[in-house]
């Protein structure tokens, strides 16, 4: 089972010819159980792409199949689709609106048609999973800190029990500690709950560390779709697209240029520490 995108095009309806084509012949398969990172500079089409996956935006042409089902088909149940493909927006805390945290999280599953009891059980489990403490349940969402709000908003999506979880820059504006907590939570959802993760990010360091595969977008097209090592090996091309490799990749390249026999395809600090220690320091 997977999400399959075939020749997807999306054009804005306004008549500015330069920026009209937001998505240009996108073909992509997102396999069940993978952790896919999507990178690209602002305006490259990342968010537009992911908003197609649960039917928030309607394609101009092409096809999107979720577990084999055409999401634009007449018989497609959109409500069911949106619980299967959960989308956490950038700044999800802007979507919190209920009087207290618990009601806010319950809104999604209730709206899906779950009974009150089921919705509450799901919501409780989702809040726990996201590490939201019990004593926050009846506080107003507006009183929480940035990191807490973000976890509550994520719980709201998780309570609908999605199989595919899309996160559009979930760590923007969080401190490094909060960033790590959210990313660890996402990676746990993948490992323990077997959720498929699609992470849109501006942090090369984060996708290098967490994603199994990276899709690079530029001007509405997919330019690379590969494992992190191979993607970041093309760092010169990435730079031309307004991106770059993680800092540690550059260190490895420079060490190699300086004549040290290190592996310059490395993309995370942990690997680099080990490699430098074994190849140089011993």
């Amino acid at each position: 089972m997977s999400i399959v995108i075939e020749h997807l095009n999306y054009e804005y309806s306004d008549s500015n010819p330069a920026g009209r084509k937001a998505l240009d012949d996108i073909c992509l398969e997102i396999e069940e159980g993978c952790f896919m990172g999507i990178i690209g500079h602002t305006g490259s089409g990342k968010s537009t792409l992911v908003q197609h996956l649960n039917g928030l935006l309607k394609k101009t042409s092409g096809k999107i199949l979720v577990d084999g089902e055409d999401i634009d088909g007449d018989d497609c149940d959109r409500k069911a689709l949106r619980s299967r493909v959960g989308l956490v927006f950038q700044y999800p805390e802007h979507q919190l609106f209920e009087v207290d945290v618990f009601s806010d999280v319950c809104f999604g599953p209730k709206n899906m048609g779950m009974t009150k009891k089921d919705a509450e059980l799901k919501s409780y489990a989702a809040l726990k999973l996201c590490g939201v403490e019990d004593d926050l349940f009846y506080r107003s969402p507006l009183e929480l800190s940035g990191g807490q709000k973000r976890r509550v908003a994520m719980a709201g999506v998780l309570a609908m029990n999605p199989k595919y979880l899309i996160l559009d820059e979930p760590t923007a504006g969080l401190d490094p500690g909060g960033r790590k907590e959210i990313l660890n939570l996402i990676s746990r959802l993948k490992k323990e709950n077997n959720m498929t993760i699609i992470l849109v990010s501006h942090s090369m360091e984060d996708v290098a560390e967490y994603a199994d595969r990276i899709v690079v977008m530029n001007k509405g097209k997919i330019v690379f779709n590969d494992i992190p090592t191979n993607v970041f090996a093309r760092y010169k091309e990435l730079e031309n697209m307004g991106l770059k490799a993680p800092e540690v990749s550059y260190i490895m390249h420079e060490l190699k240029e300086a004549g040290f026999n290190v592996d310059d395809s490395i993309t995370t600090v942990d690997q680099a520490v080990l490699n430098i220690y074994q190849r140089i320091c011993r």
Partner: peptide
């Protein structure tokens, strides 16, 4: 304090620990 250091600083720090 829930903060971090740049990757290059972290790399040197971890090597130092070794």
């Amino acid at each position: 304090l829930r903060l971090d250091v740049p990757q290059v600083t972290m790399l040197a720090h971890e090597l130092r620990k070794k």
